[in-house]
Design a protein around this nucleic acid. Sequence first.
DNA 1: TACGGTTGCCTAAAGGCTTTAGGCAACGGA
DNA 2: TCCGTTGCCTAAAGCCTTTAGGCAACCGTA
Lengths: 197, 197
Amino acid sequence: MVTGFEGGARVARAGLTPDRLAQTGAELADEIGFEQVTASALARHFGVQVASLYSHVRNTHDLKVRIAALALAEMADNAATALAGRSGRDALAALGNVYRDYARAHPGRYAAAQIRLTPEEAAATAGPRHSEMMRAVLRGYDLSEEDQVHAVRLLGSIFHGFVSLEQSGGFDHSTPNSETSWTRILDSLDATLRTWG
Amino acid sequence: MVTGFEGGARVARAGLTPDRLAQTGAELADEIGFEQVTASALARHFGVQVASLYSHVRNTHDLKVRIAALALAEMADNAATALAGRSGRDALAALGNVYRDYARAHPGRYAAAQIRLTPEEAAATAGPRHSEMMRAVLRGYDLSEEDQVHAVRLLGSIFHGFVSLEQSGGFDHSTPNSETSWTRILDSLDATLRTWG
DNA sequence: TACGGTTGCCTAAAGGCTTTAGGCAACGGA
DNA sequence: TCCGTTGCCTAAAGCCTTTAGGCAACCGTA
């Protein structure tokens, strides 16, 4: 829950910083949807004038990029924790579940993580850590250097594709439930990677 | 290319209809990006006042849904053509290529097709045709009724996931190129489906 | 403790987008 | 030719973004 006037009396300084804007923006995104996170909405929640935000972020795109970076970093942290001590199918499922669980717990942040970043912006985020994590999972399978690239792309496609289709309600009105499909898909992905050569 | 003043002299009626708005909106989306397709931009291209559009669409969301429906219908038509006379891996690749090619030729329309629709909106579009097409592809493989559901979800996830990651530039700065991965992924998907049981 | 520079949030203002209400004129059928 | 309908218009209100400039709170220093 995002509470307004976090700093106390409204005459005192609100204590805005780029990071606090991103953090509160992320919470707001989960509550009202990433699209609805505007400078106006954010200022309202801090109890400050809209123009004040522009001392801390360049513009609304800058704000959105910061929220995306925050989400990517959180997911990477979760992934690092989840992968510790796991390998093979176990690691595969753990990594996939990180994205899937994060999207369900933080739909607004997950949506933020999908915005298109420039190569420079992307390099400054946790994006590279995600690639490393996928490669770490693939170490449990016997793949050539080139096959690892293809496999990283396959993993990325399936994880991102499944989560975003599930998120958009595409799997809702049919049986069996998406949980079953998810397990089934992880199984077949594991089998594919074991016999990739 | 979207040309303004399509109806001739500006005093004459522009001949707006919901369909023409969606069509021109789709072209505009490919040129300037789906996010930038606003009632204002559209009115500018028709050489009419913004308020005039509201006689034909309820609001901007309605406009966007119509553009999405147009894109989904075009993709479904392309898929129907591409699948004619094909089966097995051939049909699988043909269907995947429909989405991939469409996203490259019409990035704005493809983005439009990703917006979240309510179940009623979705049912009124070509969405169901896409499911049918995937099931048609799967007829070339020996799957139980339930496995077909999982397989449709796997296909959807991979196609949508790969295309949208490729679209967002995620595969750019690494070798080998994404084309190679695409072929490789279609191969492994084909193998997975053949031995699904 | 008093001072002065820096920083943070303010007011003001311009410009763009969305949506509603009401009006006039062009169009098409009788 | 006339008249009802339809289509695009003007007007207006409300919200959002962004820039410019100002005052006061804050912090380090003397």
